[in-house]
Measured scan of single mutants.
Amino acid sequence: MTTFKLIINGKTLKGEITIEAVDAAEKEKIFKQYANDNGIDGEWTYDDATKTFTVTE
């Protein structure tokens, strides 16, 4: 398992979430669903070196 981080830079929601997953593709799906469930629609980036997804509205 690898630890992945999501950084949220939303208009109404900001924060960080850290979760373990098998791979980045699995985690991306979970993070995007979390963002969608919380009304966050923005630009996504991924840094493989730090295993960090960022979504910015």
Score class of each variant (00 low, 15 high):
residue 8 I to N: 00
residue 20 E to D: 08
residue 44 W to G: 00
residue 14 K to H: 12
residue 14 K to Y: 14
residue 12 T to S: 07
residue 12 T to V: 11
residue 8 I to Q: 00
residue 55 V to K: 04
residue 54 T to N: 05
residue 50 T to V: 02
residue 40 I to S: 02
residue 8 I to L: 08
residue 44 W to E: 00
residue 18 T to C: 14
residue 43 E to V: 12
residue 49 A to F: 07
residue 38 N to G: 04
residue 32 K to T: 08
residue 33 Q to D: 04
residue 42 G to I: 09
residue 41 D to F: 15
residue 18 T to P: 03
residue 46 Y to T: 01
residue 22 V to I: 09
residue 49 A to C: 11
residue 43 E to H: 10
residue 19 I to Q: 02
residue 19 I to S: 07
residue 25 A to P: 10
residue 45 T to H: 08
residue 37 D to R: 08
residue 25 A to C: 10
residue 11 K to M: 12
residue 56 T to S: 08
residue 45 T to K: 05
residue 28 E to F: 15
residue 34 Y to P: 00
residue 53 F to R: 00
residue 1 M to R: 11
residue 34 Y to Q: 00
residue 46 Y to V: 01
residue 44 W to T: 00
residue 9 N to P: 01
residue 14 K to S: 09
residue 20 E to K: 11
residue 54 T to C: 12
residue 26 E to R: 04
residue 16 E to P: 06
residue 31 F to L: 08
residue 27 K to P: 15
residue 57 E to M: 14
residue 18 T to Y: 14
residue 2 T to N: 05
residue 48 D to V: 05
residue 38 N to F: 14
residue 13 L to W: 15
residue 31 F to E: 00
residue 10 G to E: 02
residue 30 I to E: 04
residue 57 E to C: 15
residue 2 T to D: 05
residue 32 K to S: 05
residue 49 A to W: 05
residue 47 D to Q: 01
residue 39 G to L: 07
residue 32 K to N: 06
residue 15 G to D: 09
residue 18 T to N: 05
residue 10 G to D: 01
residue 22 V to T: 11
residue 6 L to V: 13
residue 31 F to A: 08
residue 14 K to I: 14
residue 42 G to C: 13
residue 17 I to R: 03
residue 36 N to K: 14
residue 26 E to V: 09
residue 28 E to R: 07
residue 9 N to V: 13
residue 4 F to D: 00
residue 32 K to L: 11
residue 2 T to E: 06
residue 48 D to T: 05
residue 39 G to Q: 06
residue 5 K to M: 07
residue 4 F to M: 03
residue 50 T to N: 05
residue 46 Y to D: 00
residue 16 E to H: 07
residue 44 W to K: 00
residue 42 G to L: 09
residue 19 I to M: 06
residue 22 V to P: 12
residue 55 V to P: 00
residue 34 Y to H: 02
residue 7 I to K: 03
residue 46 Y to R: 00
residue 15 G to S: 12
residue 6 L to M: 04
residue 30 I to R: 02
residue 4 F to T: 02
residue 29 K to Q: 09
residue 43 E to C: 13
residue 38 N to S: 07
residue 17 I to K: 01
residue 30 I to C: 13
residue 6 L to T: 00
residue 43 E to S: 08
residue 9 N to Y: 13
residue 42 G to E: 01
residue 32 K to H: 06
residue 32 K to Y: 09
residue 26 E to A: 07
residue 2 T to L: 13
residue 18 T to D: 03
residue 56 T to D: 04
residue 23 D to R: 05
residue 20 E to T: 11
residue 56 T to F: 10
residue 50 T to H: 03
residue 37 D to V: 08
residue 3 T to D: 03
residue 17 I to M: 05
residue 37 D to Y: 09
residue 41 D to A: 10
residue 28 E to Y: 14
residue 28 E to K: 04
residue 46 Y to C: 06
residue 55 V to H: 03
residue 25 A to T: 09
residue 26 E to L: 09
residue 32 K to G: 04
residue 11 K to H: 11
residue 32 K to F: 10
residue 47 D to V: 03
residue 55 V to C: 11
residue 19 I to H: 02
residue 42 G to V: 08
residue 11 K to T: 12
residue 12 T to K: 07
residue 42 G to D: 02
residue 50 T to Q: 03
residue 6 L to F: 14
residue 54 T to Q: 03
residue 29 K to S: 10
residue 47 D to M: 02
residue 25 A to Q: 09
residue 6 L to E: 02
residue 43 E to D: 10
residue 43 E to A: 09
residue 14 K to Q: 11
residue 47 D to F: 03
residue 24 A to D: 14
residue 27 K to Y: 15
residue 57 E to Q: 10
residue 27 K to H: 13
residue 54 T to M: 07
residue 4 F to Q: 02
residue 25 A to L: 10
residue 55 V to E: 03
residue 41 D to C: 14
residue 19 I to L: 09
residue 13 L to G: 09
residue 25 A to M: 08
residue 3 T to H: 06
residue 48 D to C: 06
residue 8 I to Y: 09
residue 3 T to R: 10
residue 2 T to A: 08
residue 42 G to M: 06
residue 22 V to D: 09
residue 18 T to S: 06
residue 21 A to C: 15
residue 50 T to A: 03
residue 5 K to R: 09
residue 34 Y to C: 12
residue 6 L to H: 00
residue 53 F to D: 01
residue 15 G to I: 15
residue 12 T to G: 11
residue 16 E to F: 13
residue 4 F to E: 02
residue 21 A to F: 14
residue 28 E to D: 08
residue 53 F to M: 05
residue 31 F to K: 00
residue 38 N to A: 10
residue 51 K to D: 06
residue 47 D to P: 00
residue 5 K to A: 03
residue 47 D to A: 02
residue 10 G to C: 15
residue 52 T to C: 07
residue 1 M to V: 09
residue 42 G to K: 03
residue 16 E to K: 07
residue 36 N to S: 13
residue 4 F to W: 05
residue 46 Y to M: 01
residue 24 A to M: 11
residue 41 D to Y: 14
residue 21 A to P: 02
residue 31 F to H: 00
residue 19 I to C: 15
residue 39 G to S: 05
residue 13 L to Q: 08
residue 53 F to E: 01
residue 53 F to L: 05
residue 15 G to C: 15
residue 23 D to F: 08
residue 44 W to C: 04
residue 56 T to Y: 10
residue 27 K to F: 15
residue 53 F to N: 01
residue 29 K to R: 11
residue 35 A to K: 03
residue 18 T to V: 10
residue 29 K to P: 03
residue 56 T to L: 07
residue 28 E to L: 14
residue 44 W to V: 04
residue 51 K to M: 08
residue 56 T to H: 08
residue 35 A to L: 15
residue 5 K to Q: 05
residue 11 K to P: 06
residue 13 L to A: 06
residue 23 D to S: 09
residue 2 T to R: 07
residue 49 A to S: 08
residue 2 T to I: 14
residue 33 Q to A: 11
residue 36 N to I: 14
residue 47 D to C: 07
residue 48 D to R: 03
residue 15 G to P: 03
residue 39 G to D: 06
residue 3 T to L: 12
residue 32 K to Q: 10
residue 54 T to L: 05
residue 50 T to D: 02
residue 15 G to Q: 14
residue 50 T to I: 04
residue 25 A to K: 07
residue 6 L to S: 00
residue 51 K to A: 05
residue 23 D to L: 06
residue 56 T to A: 04
residue 33 Q to V: 06
residue 43 E to I: 13
residue 37 D to A: 11
residue 19 I to D: 01
residue 32 K to A: 09
residue 41 D to Q: 12
residue 11 K to L: 13
residue 17 I to S: 01
residue 20 E to I: 13
residue 10 G to F: 15
residue 24 A to K: 09
residue 25 A to W: 12
residue 11 K to Y: 11
residue 36 N to T: 11
residue 4 F to S: 02
residue 13 L to M: 12
residue 37 D to M: 10
residue 52 T to R: 01
residue 35 A to D: 00
residue 9 N to M: 11
residue 10 G to V: 11
